[in-house]
């Protein structure tokens, strides 16, 4: 049966902990002279990116290569996709080329779910529209656990454009599975209708929740949102929801500041905070490779996957 990682909701608590524990071992490879494992030799991983994301694509590419998989980068630009080939045709083509796994980034929510219905190999969602980005949530949880020793019971505050954020959706699902206590903070315009059904608290007041937070995760806020009247100006957004030096000083000593990148410095986060000791931003990038190695190993390393959901 074809098994995939399409949503953070595909992961049980045991699955998620298995990924994090496996990633711990994968992280050791970074410290070795030979940063390569033979585990996925002869397997083919396709990075199918319909949206530019050098950071995520590189992370998956490195993860697959560290495990000795063959990696094909298939970007929608300059390919037949831009000439009107459908996602289904592309999927069947890649499968005919022997893809054991397809890592897909797509501008439409749900595209990985569609893809999973058309291929026999594993599908890994590397970010779909405004839906989910499960490996980002895994690397965030991994980073929290490395810094703070646990995820369960942590008070995690996610700040910013929750409405359009796949990172927020995956993090809320995964963190609640792992027993963290999540609070979303955003202007009401940037929270989806229906957010009250999510396993998270909601607040409009960043200052009120900061002192209690163990983790503050800042989401990117695109300036284009101003044009659509989600908020009046960059200045007002930064004043009410930006993590500036004054606000960061309200955090307790061990609290960490996270950002999935790319950042808009000065908008949602002050440069001093982004580069400060609390910041895990560089670690998140490094941990991303380890977590993605773990996911690829657990999906592709055996006769059948050890984690993930059915399509």
């Amino acid at each position: 049966m074809s098994r995939h990682l399409l949503s953070a909701a595909d992961l049980t608590r045991e699955d998620a902990l298995l990924v994090l524990d496996t990633a711990e071992e994968m992280a050791l490879v970074e410290e070795r002279t030979v940063k390569k494992l033979p585990t996925l030799r002869g397997r083919t991983v396709v990075n199918l990116f319909f949206e530019d994301s050098t950071r995520t694509r590189t992370s998956f590419e490195l993860a697959a290569k560290r495990l000795s998989a063959d990696v094909i980068n298939f970007s929608a630009k300059g390919s037949s996709v831009s000439k009107g080939e459908t996602l289904k045709d592309t999927a069947l083509t890649l499968e005919a080329m022997g893809a054991d796994a397809i890592v897909i980034r797509h501008a439409w929510s749900g595209a990985p779910v569609n893809l999973a219905r058309w291929v026999h190999g594993s599908v890994v969602n590397a970010g779909d529209g405004t839906h989910e980005h499960p490996t980002q949530a895994l690397l965030d949880a991994f980073t929290m656990r490395r810094r703070l020793g646990r995820v369960e019971g942590l008070k995690v505050t996610i700040v910013g454009d929750v409405l359009h954020s796949r990172v927020a959706r995956s993090n809320v699902l995964l963190l609640s599975t792992l027993g963290a206590d999540v609070t979303l903070v955003a202007p009401p315009t940037l929270l989806p209708v229906g957010v009250e059904s999510w396993p998270a608290q909601v607040s409009y007041d960043l200052d009120a929740v900061l002192a209690k937070s163990d983790v503050v995760m800042m989401l990117r806020v695109q300036r284009e949102r101003m044009g659509a009247a989600y908020f009046p100006s960059q200045r007002e957004y930064a004043r009410r929801y930006g993590l500036d030096v004054r606000r960061a000083s309200a955090l307790h000593d061990d609290a960490v500041v996270m950002h999935p990148g790319p950042m808009v410095r000065g908008m949602e986060i002050a440069p001093e905070v982004a580069d400060g000791v609390r910041s895990t931003i560089v670690e998140q990038v490094r941990n991303g490779v380890s977590v993605r190695m773990a996911v690829l190993y657990l999906l592709l390393g055996g006769a059948s996957p050890a984690i993930g959901g059915d399509a």
């Binding site: 524990d21 033979p38 055996g302 050890a306």
Partner: peptide
């Protein structure tokens, strides 16, 4: 585990410590 030649015969196993 990651160097075993029988990986493809069963589900991926949890890794042990190195």
């Amino acid at each position: 585990t990651l160097y075993r030649d029988d990986l493809r015969l069963k589900r991926p196993r949890p890794l042990e410590q190195t």
